[in-house]
Write a protein that binds this DNA or RNA. Sequence first.
RNA 1: GUCCCUAUCGUCUAGAGGCCUAGGACAACACCCUUUCACGGUGUGAACCGGGGUUCGAAUCCCCGUGGGGACGCCA
Length: 463
Amino acid sequence: MTVRTRFAPSPTGFLHIGGARTALFSWAYARRHGGKFILRIEDTDVARSTPQAVQAILDGMAWLKLQADEGPFYQMQRMERYRAVIGQMLQAGTAYYCYTSKEALEQLRAAQEERKEKPRYDGAWRPEPGKVLPPPPVGVEPVVRFKNPLSGEVAWQDQVKGRIAIDNSELDDFIIARADGTPTYNFCVVVDDWDMGITHVIRGDDHVNNTPRQINLLQALGAPLPLYAHLSMILGDDGQKLSKRHGAVSVMQYDEEGYLPEAVLNYLGRLGWSHGDDEIFSMEQFVAWFDLDHITASAAQFNTEKLNWLNAHYIKQADGARLLAETVRRLGMQGIVTQPTAELAQAVELYRDRAGNLNELATALRPFVVEPTIADELRAQHLTPVALQALQALRAALQDCAWDAAELGQAIKRTAAAQGLKMPQLAIPLRVALLGAPQSPSIDKLLQAMGREQVLARLQRLS
RNA sequence: GUCCCUAUCGUCUAGAGGCCUAGGACAACACCCUUUCACGGUGUGAACCGGGGUUCGAAUCCCCGUGGGGACGCCA
């Protein structure tokens, strides 16, 4: 049996971190078993679905390089198929028309809640042998309800949570088609998973409660049952539930914030899944190791600090040309138009080990591209008359110094000694003069990367 | 309210009855490296939710509490 998994987001917003992890796990499982990963857009909620959201999801998947083998399929394009199946069910008696109005339903629910009961449909229009149904009211378009079994239990072996069983008495006859004829979520999922031959349903555990309904439907249809794996949710950094107005952000925002996709992927792969003590792994390794047995059953709190650590790691590892391109692009976003020069490439190498993210890297590299402004405070503190005099002496010494880190280091040392200064007394003002900041990588390498022309010009401008 | 899921350091987790004096990682702290700041290295502190069972033996199995989460839509 070929493994077939799917990711089935509804396009009502961006692809957020929880969705991304679900997609990653589904993708990896299919890859691991030489199967197929299918992307399906669940857009039957016409009022809330937007083409922008579809695009946002596609963009997020592309950024993470989670390639679908089939799809994207759109449920709105499968209406005919859904209608046909509903027709069959009506015919077979596994579904029926219900004329209870929305308003009546709301009253029913309110009354049940009043009595501290579980709100559910009362089965008024459910046909039973010997039962006399009321005459259909005129002018009311009926909904179609699934005739759920009344007794017994529906159970499955969840691949992450173990056996889960729910009594059919807890379930009611849910609506599979609205009054306007459009099918609803639980029904579409079932038909799609069946038609698309899905073998493993890997999804968020907010769907655990839908599973028994879907299994009953599948059985009514005579369809094979897939295996289910329900992933627990991801909580925000503060332990609170992620929601649109609290902490939930698009995966694309991680790009904007300077994260490398491989860092996000590695972080997500390790969040709620483990492979012994392994923390850092490539997608190749992840695919080779990934299994359902080591998925955590409980909710996991997102930890930005750890993501940052991974991001820093991947920045250290990244290809230099790629980092240079990212730096240029991000400087552009900061309003600084520049080119990927050899000097900038050198500077990238000098700074990559100290950057937590790509935006920090770009920001640190700004002084290599545009003249920094030196804050008055720093100027007063570091560019004292003594320091300025030493810097001019250094400028003279640098005039015809070979432009190489070792030589430059010697020149700085000699100048400091000649001026009766300790190294930091010259090096710190020099940093301030060149970068507008008192900290930097080693000063000799800094000079080398910045280039003779720029260094001398900046020193000259001080006087 | 009813049903379902869940519970190991602050956080992510290892742990499938003896290998656990509970391991790793992030974060924290200390020290080392260093002309600064980082990086890096070394080290320290830090956890089995509570109560009952089962067993020679329980972080691991069972039950009951408690905490956390989810569901109960003509949303997905």
